[in-house]
Nucleic acid binder design. Structure first.
Length: 775
DNA sequence: CAGTGAGCGAGCTTCCGCTTGACTT
């Protein structure tokens, strides 16, 4: 039996540490937090406002068995070591464990591992301390304020907008960022300038014929100016004024944090944030990389040494330069290392293509971070114009020594700048011949919308959200339908091109596509409406600095300068009155005008089931009429004409009769459908629901029936077609068919076997905590 | 991922952060 029980947060970590500590130590994991605030009866918020905001904690029901195990093991051990992470949350976990496991203060020690290496772990064991209650209280203040914000703000949205919505310190600011970016992008009006590029020919220092492209150091505001300039050029001479050659260098980027990994995996591999995290989790659990939820850029001494060895072996000594990085991000807690390969000598690792790609990305980034600067020679050739003060400028870059670039080059969000090429060697005062000079109308670019990864980057800059939550925040705002992923299609426009060639200016129009953006986050009408309301009514919470300011108070609690409940109280005393001051009634819609037919107002608003148009109000004698917006329409841009047209639908109409019953075509919340008696049949996309023929309707009905027919029917056992493919239904329970089995060939006997061999899942009807989308 | 309509009703929804399984027929 082990004398010592060590409790860490992650099971993977537990395994590694147990190996290092040997048989006297039993290492288990808490799997994150073990308790959380929970409501008590009518007090659903779970906070006692009359008793210093005392939170009511309850054990996560999914964790009761785990807690039992930990309790038993703790009783058996002579000493318990609480080894949760060294940050605010980790300290709180240690304290909750102490409470829940009823640990004796005398036999309980708090330790922290700075790295998962034998040395660091043995160091930690000889340097135990006590739980830092100030830090625990700082976490509690954070938790309680988040709870109050979420649980007081969300119900306001249920009343003012629609039920089931949510608001919170993090998610609401994320939505605000997206909503405001959208506003910027749509309000943006491009301005055009004329950019001038010249192609010259000449001879280099060796007398060889060369060509050279150079751009004018000025952009013209008008076509007239650009034309006048070209006119002047037609009689000008061009001469190299100055050639400057400057050595510069470029340094590698730091190794990956969670946010940086998400950004680079998005730019280089086109992975959504959730995919990156899933793959990284797999690599971590397989022992191939270090922990993937971190805000630290630092590497252990061991890792730096291993990287050195790998760099010298794969490249050469010249390519190596040991570096240690410091975090610059706001609110970083640095309980872990940067994300790096566990064994950097492994050039490839992972159990599938995507894992291998991500591993390679992590490995190359880690290597590069320990490599030498790239040495670059930057050449600038300035070309004078005999009758103008402007200059043509050609710049070229030559990589003299690639250094870290051999392993890894960081991407940028706009990959427009392409690597500049080497310039020909041309002596100063050389005369150049202009082959052609082209002035092109160039528009300024609209602000780029957020991708998932660039949103994470922005949130990290603001100190909002944590590495463990970036991915789930995106899931939340998507599932609430505040934002959607969209490919923004580009538009076409004409640009004017003026070309001076052989002393003649020709004018041409060229078409270009602009504004196309792939996989961006855009706000929905619901997101815009919710955000406007929150920004208007709760500007303090929606303030981009709210988190940063709160963090200062939490730091003060951690340093023992403030009492945690005083901080909460100060917040609550200003926050709660703003909740109470909210007036009754829904957020008002946008009045588009008057319906000429009825004389009633036409309002665009967020209805119970999404954006809609309402004619008349509920106070009128008659019921108001409603119509849903069509795809692509917005309550903020729809015109009165477009809105009225929505009421001008053919639905519902009768296509005919089938089996003695009327077939009615209509549209519902899930699209167009055919109704026969009490049965509904969705109309597939390849039909035109506005003018359906009877024959088509019958076909749709028959196809649906066919699909719903049991594949096999053995009486009480049936093989049915479901969403996830064929399955077996028996006794009101469903059973999975093994992938190797062809559903159509199943016999009753085989079905029984499957049913019997399926472990009776303790049908946890205790409703899962994660409720999906709004109904 | 069940279901085909919008006012009222009863009661429900909701936060952030730390971690993995169970289970998605």
């Amino acid at each position: 039996m082990s004398k010592n029980l060590v409790i860490v947060e992650s099971p993977t970590k537990a395994k590694t540490i147990e190996k290092i500590l040997g048989k006297d130590y039993h290492v288990l994991s808490s799997q994150g937090h073990v308790r959380d605030i929970e409501g008590e009866g009518k007090n659903s918020i779970g906070i006692d406002f009359n008793n210093h905001y005392a939170p009511h904690y309850a054990i996560d029901p999914h964790k009761t068995r785990l807690i039992e195990t930990l309790r038993t093991e703790a009783k058996k051990a002579d000493r318990v070591w609480l080894a949760s992470d060294e940050d605010r949350e980790g300290e709180a976990i240690a304290w909750h464990l102490q409470q829940v496991l009823e640990l004796d203060a005398d036999t309980t020690k708090r330790i922290v591992f700075h790295e998962i290496t034998p040395n660091a772990i043995k160091q930690a064991i000889v340097n135990p301390r006590d739980i830092d209650y100030n830090l625990v209280h700082a976490q509690q203040a954070r938790r309680v304020i988040d709870r109050i914000v979420g649980f007081e703000l969300s119900p306001v949205l249920w009343k003012k907008i629609i039920p089931g919505l949510s608001a919170g310190r993090v998610q609401s600011v994320a939505v605000r960022l997206i909503a405001e970016k959208e506003k910027e992008a749509t309000a943006f009006t491009p301005t055009a300038q004329y950019r001038v590029v010249a192609d010259f020919s000449s001879t280099d220092v060796n007398g060889k014929a060369v060509t050279l492209q150079a751009e004018l150091n000025h952009r013209f505001a008008t076509k007239q100016e650009a034309e006048a300039f070209l006119e002047a050029c037609s009689s000008a001479t061009f001469e190299v004024r100055q050639v400057t050659c400057k050595p510069t260098h470029r340094s590698p980027a730091p190794p990956f944090t969670t946010s940086l990994l998400q950004q680079e995996a998005s730019r280089k591999l086109h992975f959504p944030v959730s995919k990156t995290m899933r793959l990284a989790q797999n690599l971590y659990e397989a022992g191939l990389i270090t922990y993937m939820r971190t805000d630290s850029v630092s590497l252990s001494a061991l890792a730096i040494a291993a990287a050195q060895k790998a760099i010298v072996e794969e490249f050469s000594e010249q390519y190596h330069k040991a570096r240690q990085y410091k975090t610059t991000s706001k609110g970083a807690q640095e309980a872990h290392e940067a994300i790096r390969p566990a064994y950097i000598e492994n050039q490839t690792a992972g159990s599938n293509d995507d894992e291998r790609k991500l591993y390679t990305l992590i490995r190359r980034r880690t290597l590069a971070s320990q490599m030498a600067d790239a040495q670059i020679e930057k050449t600038v050739i300035e070309i004078g114009i005999s009758n103008s003060n402007f200059l043509f400028v050609a710049t070229g870059e030559v990589v003299v020594f690639d250094g870290f670039m051999r392993a890894y080059v960081q991407s940028t969000d706009d990959d427009e700048e392409q690597a500049e090429a080497r310039l020909p060697q041309i002596a100063e005062h050389t005369l150049l011949t202009d082959e052609q000079i082209v002035a092109t109308q160039t528009y300024s670019k609209s602000p780029a919308r957020f991708t998932e990864a660039s949103l994470v980057k922005k949130m990290e800059e603001l100190g909002i959200g944590r590495p463990s939550t970036y991915s789930s925040i995106i899931d939340t705002i998507l599932s609430r339908d505040y934002v959607r992923r969209a490919n923004i299609t580009g538009q076409k426009r004409d640009v004017e091109v003026l070309t001076l060639k052989d002393q003649k200016i020709t004018r041409k129009n060229k078409q270009e596509t602009y504004g196309a953006e792939g996989q961006k986050l855009v706000p929905t009408d619901l997101g815009i409406a919710t955000n406007s309301f929150l920004v208007e009514e709760f500007p303090d919470i929606l303030n981009y600095d709210f988190t940063a300011q709160s963090e200062k108070s939490f730091d003060d609690i951690a340093e023992g300068k403030l009492l945690w409940y005083d901080v909460v109280d100060k917040f609550y005393k200003t926050f709660h009155p703003s909740i109470l001051s909210i007036e009754k009634g829904k957020v008002e819609g946008r009045e588009l005008g008057i319906d000429p037919a009825s004389g009633k107002p036409v309002i665009a608003k967020i209805g119970k089931r999404g954006p809609c148009i309402q004619i008349g109000t509920a106070t009128d004698e008659q019921k108001p009429r409603f119509a849903s917006l069509e795809k692509g329409q917005s309550i903020y841009t729809i015109t009165l004409e477009e809105a009225l047209k929505l009421f001008d639908t053919p639905y519902p109409y009768t296509v005919g009769e089938y089996e003695g019953e009327e077939l009615i075509v209509s549209t519902g919340m899930y699209g167009p459908y055919i109704k026969q008696g009490k049965t509904f049949y969705s109309i597939p996309k390849d039909y035109n629901p506005a003018a359906l023929r009877l024959s088509e309707a019958i076909m749709i009905i028959e196809n649906k029936r066919q699909a719903q027919m049991p594949i096999k029917d053995f009486g009480e056992i049936k093989v049915l077609n479901g969403r996830y493919g064929p399955y077996i239904k028996y006794n009101n329970a469903n059973y999975k068919i093994p992938k190797s089995t062809e559903a159509a060939t199943l016999t009753e006997e085989q079905c029984r076997q499957i049913i019997e061999s399926t472990p009776t899942t303790t049908t946890k009807s205790t409703r899962s905590r994660k409720t999906g989308k709004k109904s």
